[in-house]
Design a protein around this nucleic acid. Structure first.
Lengths: 166, 166
DNA sequence: GCTCATGATGTTATTTTATAACATTTCTAA
DNA sequence: TTAGAAATGTTATAAAATAACATCATGAGC
C-alpha cells in the first residue's frame, strides 16, 4: 500500500490505478442505476478513458483512444455527447481553464467543483472546501445573485512539484 | 445620474458608458506609463473594444470590430497578442468558462479574479471578496499547494434578471 | 542624427476545440 | 409488438487559438 494512505489518489502518488478506475466505474454503475440514467457501453468506455490518468484529459485525446480501440475513426460528437452525459451526472468535471475533463472523486456528493491545478505535473486535485463554498454563497447573496454552479480553479504548484523543483 | 450610484457599473445598469470607457483608458494609460509598459495604439484600441460593453466579449468579436474599423481583415493573432498584453497588465480578465474577455474594474488592485456570471444577461460582475480569497489560500496551504492564480467564476442569475423573470 | 538590438506587428497556414443538421439504430414502456 | 423517445452514426462546419517566419517601429547608446 502507498505510504500516503491519508492522501487522495493523485497522478503523482503511486497507487493501484486499475483498482482506482474499477472503483470509479462501479460507483458510476450504482449511481446511474439508482437514478435510472443510462450508462451505456459507450458512455462507460468514455468514463473509463477519462479516468485513464488522474490528470484532466482533452476530448480529442479521449477520441483518439476510442478510435484506436475500435480501429476506426470516431466522430468528435460521439465523445462530446458522452462527456455531456457524464458531466450532467456529476461523474466527470470539466476544467474550464484547460478545456479538459477529469473524473469526479466523489460523485453523488456536493460537487462544488473546486480544483487545485498544478502547472508542473498537470494534476487537477479536486477539493471540496465548505468555507470556500460558503464564502462564495455569502458574496453572491449580498449582491442578490442566485448561484447555480460555482467554479473554482486555482492555478499553482502542488506539493510534490515544489519538492522536486525547489 | 443613475438611481444606483452605490452600485458598480454593469451592462444592465444605465450609466454614462462613454465616460466609463474613457476612465478605463485613462487609468490604463497611467498604469502603463508608471510601469514602462507600452500601451500602443493597437493595444489601446483593443482595450477600448473590450470595454465597449460591460459583458465579456470573445476575441473574434473584437477582431470583427477591428476589421470593420479598418475596412480590411485583421488576423486573429493581432487581437490575441493585444489581449495577452492586456491580461498580463491586469487591464483585462479572461473568463475561462466563456472563452471571453472583460475589462478589469480595478486594475492595479489585488486581482483575485472573481466573477458572478449571469446566465440571463451575460453580465460578468467582477467582485473582490477577501473571504473567498482567504478561504482558497487556506485550503491550498493545508495541502501544500502554492497558489499562483485563483480563478472563481460563479454561474447563476443576477439580481436584475431575477426581478425581470420571476 | 545614426544604428542596432529589442519589441511589436503583419502574414499565412494550421491546430485545437466544439457544434449543427439530419439519418439511423436501440431501448423502453405501454 | 410497436410506437415514441433516447442514443448513436455521419457529414460538414463553426469557433477559438497558436505556429512559424517576415517586416516594421522604437528607443538606448554611440
Amino acid at each position: 500500500m502507498s505510504a500516503h494512505t491519508d492522501h487522495a489518489h493523485t497522478a503523482a502518488a503511486p497507487h493501484d490505478h486499475a483498482h482506482c478506475v474499477a472503483d470509479a466505474l462501479t460507483r458510476a454503475d450504482a449511481l446511474c442505476a439508482e437514478r435510472g440514467a443510462r450508462l451505456t457501453i459507450l458512455r462507460r468506455r468514455v468514463l473509463e478513458l477519462v479516468w485513464s490518468s488522474h490528470r484532466p484529459r482533452g476530448a480529442y485525446a479521449i477520441l483518439e483512444d476510442l478510435s484506436q480501440q475500435d480501429g476506426k475513426a470516431t466522430a468528435p460528437l460521439t465523445v462530446y455527447r458522452a462527456l455531456e452525459f457524464l458531466v450532467d451526472q456529476g461523474l466527470v468535471h470539466r476544467i474550464e481553464s484547460l478545456n479538459a475533463y477529469v473524473g469526479c472523486a466523489a460523485p453523488g456528493a456536493s460537487h462544488s467543483g473546486q480544483f487545485l491545478v498544478c502547472e508542473g505535473c498537470g494534476d487537477a486535485a479536486e477539493i471540496d472546501d465548505p468555507s470556500i463554498r460558503s464564502a462564495i454563497d455569502a458574496a453572491a447573496t449580498v449582491r442578490g445573485f442566485r448561484v447555480q454552479r460555482p467554479t473554482v480553479e486555482v492555478r499553482g504548484v502542488c506539493k510534490d512539484c515544489q519538492e522536486k523543483h525547489p
